[in-house]
């Protein structure tokens, strides 16, 4: 009991320390999201159709690019937490591997909460810019006005996806610590799998992205992330002390 309490208090102290040390991440996230917002202003999809009398040009707008950029950002954030610099920083604290992982995961969850809320709400900045800057007579009103339940669902789903991506980035970081060759092996394995058995990659993608029940989706993501984070912890336990 006291060991658990001790572990948690150490992990939480490390969490606070790491949160302060990595606070610069917020600037890169804001920068990335503003950049994605600018890209989003040109639309995410477009189509054109022509008949004898009618030409129709349609452009679709959404926060998809902003969310996608945030996904990439969290991947790199999680990778950064396992870098040698961060590991070295760990040794200045009273720590063990588990408390270090717990504090890292806590930090990742904090950034995930911030990233998911900001990326989902950034879509409204896009809409406001369009409202004032574009010819409104060309804009469809459908989907313009916020619906609270949709916003909440969007934030939670984005957060869950970010958790999965963060866990994968974290695992990659640990693998790189084990052997630097994993920098190449990890994407190569994915690329190879896509070439050898594209159906398997599609199935694993569909396992998350095609799930239409929010509850099942959440269970799948949480369990998968737990498995990947646990694997990261297990793998790092087999590493030398200062590696």
């Amino acid at each position: 009991m006291s060991l658990n309490n001790n572990l948690l208090s150490i992990a939480s102290r490390q969490y606070v320390y790491k949160l302060k040390a990595n606070s610069s991440g917020v600037y890169s996230l804001i920068f990335i999201q503003v950049l994605a917002l600018l890209f989003s202003l040109s639309g995410i999809q477009s189509m054109s159709s022509v008949s004898e009398t009618l030409r129709v040009n349609v452009k679709y707008f959404s926060a998809d690019i902003i969310i996608s950029f945030t996904f990439i950002w969290i991947f790199f954030m999680s990778l950064r937490l396992t870098s040698i610099n961060s590991k070295t920083m760990d040794f200045t604290l009273v720590t063990n591997r588990l408390s270090s992982h717990l504090s890292n995961i806590g930090l990742l969850l904090t950034t995930i909460i911030f990233g998911s809320i900001s990326s989902s709400l950034m879509g409204f900045v896009l809409k406001i810019i369009m409202y004032f800057a574009f010819d409104r007579s060309q804009i469809g009103v459908n989907g313009f006005y916020p619906v609270f339940s949709d916003i909440l669902l969007g934030i939670i789903t984005t957060g869950l996806y970010m958790t999965l991506i963060a866990s994968m980035g974290y695992l990659l970081g640990i693998l790189i610590q084990i052997h630097v060759l994993f920098v190449v092996l990890y994407p190569a394995a994915l690329f190879g799998l896509e070439k050898v058995n594209p159906q398997m990659l599609k199935l694993s993608f569909d396992f998350f992205a095609s799930e239409t029940s929010p509850l099942l989706f959440a269970i799948r993501i949480i369990l998968s992330s737990l498995i990947v984070f646990s694997l990261s912890c297990l793998l790092s336990n087999r590493m030398e002390v200062r590696k």
Binding site: G43, I44, Q45, E52, T53, L54, R55, V56, N57, V58, K59, Y60, F61, S62, A63, D64, I67, S120, G123, K127, M130, F134, Q138, I139, G140, N142, G143, F144, D150, L153, G154, T157, T158, Y161, A209, S210, E211, T212, S213, P214, F217
Partner: peptide, 21 residues
């Protein structure tokens, strides 16, 4: 017939929302 060009700018749900539809 009247020649007409329509330019539509439409909002789409984010993929994180449309997944459940």
């Amino acid at each position: 017939p009247v020649q007409q060009t329509l330019t539509l700018k439409l909002f789409k749900s984010n993929f994180t929302q449309s997944q459940f539809e």
